[in-house]
Each structure stands twice: as C-alpha cells, then as structure tokens.
C-alpha cells in the first residue's frame, strides 16, 4: 500500500508528465488559454488515462508478453509478440476514447457538453500513450499501473490548470511582441518546471 502511495506522489510531483517528460505538450500549450477549458481537458485526461493504461497492462500481460499466450495452449508459451505493442496500444486508446465519448454522451450529457471537443482529441495526446509505454518499460504490476496512471493524469491536470491560471493573468502584462503567445508560454513552463524540481528532494 505504501508503495502505491509512493508511486502516486512521485508521478504527480517529482516525475510530472509535463515538467519532467514533456508528454502532452501540444495540447498543454494549445488548450491552456482559459482555466475553464483547461479544467475540462485535464479532467478528461485523468479519466481516459485511468481507463486505458490498466487496459493496456492487461493486453500486454495476457496477450503480448513472452509466455502470455500459454493460457490458450501450452505450445504457445514461447511466442513473444511485444513488437506489436505500439499498434495494439494505440488501437486500444483510440477505441477506448471512442467508447468513453459515446457512453458519456448518452448517460452524462452535462459532462459531455463541458468536455466538448477535447474527448476525441485525447487519442493523440502523447501523455496517454506515454503512460502505457512507461508502464511497459518499468514493468509495473496491475496495482502499480493503476496508481501510476492516476498519478500521471492528476499531474497533467495540475500542470495545465496552473499554466492556464498564469496565462489568464499574463494578458495584463507587457511582453515584447516577438515573445508573445508561444514563446512566453514556453518560458513560463520552464519556470514552473524549475519550481517542480524542488519536489525532487522528497525522499520516497
């Protein structure tokens, strides 16, 4: 249990998906102009991440890894299909996002309207696929994978809402013209990254 909490805190603060790995920067920069939309996107990312990463773990564990197919027939035990992981992971994510979109539209129209166009866009958010690939590389078990995906989602949520809050204030400041927009957003993200570095002193 303590191990899981450690992973959760570590992925939110110390190894934040945005500030330490730059995953999902595209939507991070594009959708952080208003707090409200940033909040919606962040929420959607947490949700999809928490759904797809454990799902991909199951696919990896019971279909792709060496020996994973032995539950079908013992003679399949030596089959190693991990080279297919990219294609299967991205298909799972695309499919899951589509499914989530349909379910949310049918049963929670309020939430659907507030998330709007962000749901389908999440398919190509690097942080989602990144979480699945990190899960594969670090060889987490199922509980750890769940904690990790929750942490990564919350980390993204935290980062995008913080940046949106800062950018709303920026409208009143006097920035050199060539630096406006993307340039200053980059530099602010860097400064936030420096601030988040202070968390790396935490002993876990």
């Amino acid at each position: 249990m303590q191990n899981l909490i450690n992973i959760l805190i570590k992925t939110i603060f110390v190894e934040n998906v945005i500030f330490a790995f730059f995953l999902g920067m595209c939507s991070f920069l594009a959708v952080s102009k208003k707090i409200k939309t940033a909040f919606g996107l962040g929420l959607a990312v947490v949700f999809v991440m928490l759904l797809t990463t454990p799902l991909n773990y199951l696919i990896l564990r019971y279909m792709l890894q060496e020996g994973a197919l032995s539950w079908i027939h013992p003679s399949l035990a030596s089959v190693d299909l991990t080279f297919l992981s990219f294609i299967l992971f991205i298909s799972t994510i695309a499919g899951a996002v589509q499914l989530v979109e349909m379910v949310v539209e049918k049963f929670m129209p309020g939430l659907y309207n507030s998330l709007g166009i962000f749901l389908p866009l999440i398919t190509v958010n690097c942080s989602i696929l990144g979480a699945s690939l990190f899960m594969q590389e670090r060889e987490y078990n199922f509980a750890e994978t769940t904690a990790f995906s929750l942490g990564a989602g919350i980390g993204f949520f935290l980062a995008i809402v913080l940046l949106a809050a800062i950018r709303e204030r920026l409208r009143y400041s006097n920035i050199p013209a060539p630096l406006q927009g993307l340039g200053i957003a980059m530099i602010i993200t860097a400064l936030m990254g420096l601030a988040f570095l202070s968390f790396s002193g935490i002993q876990l």
């Binding site: 500030f19 013209a177 060539p178 340039g183 980059m186 530099i187 993200t189 860097a190 400064l191 990254g193």
Partner: peptide
C-alpha cells in the same frame, strides 16, 4: 528538463 523549454522559448523569440 526545463533548459529545453528555455532554449525553445529563446529560439522562438529570435525567430519572430
């Protein structure tokens, strides 16, 4: 990691 962001920010500044 933040250094990369600073550098790209500066590159954008210079380019623009």
């Amino acid at each position: 990691p933040p250094a990369a962001l600073f550098l790209i920010g500066i590159y954008i500044w210079w380019q623009r």
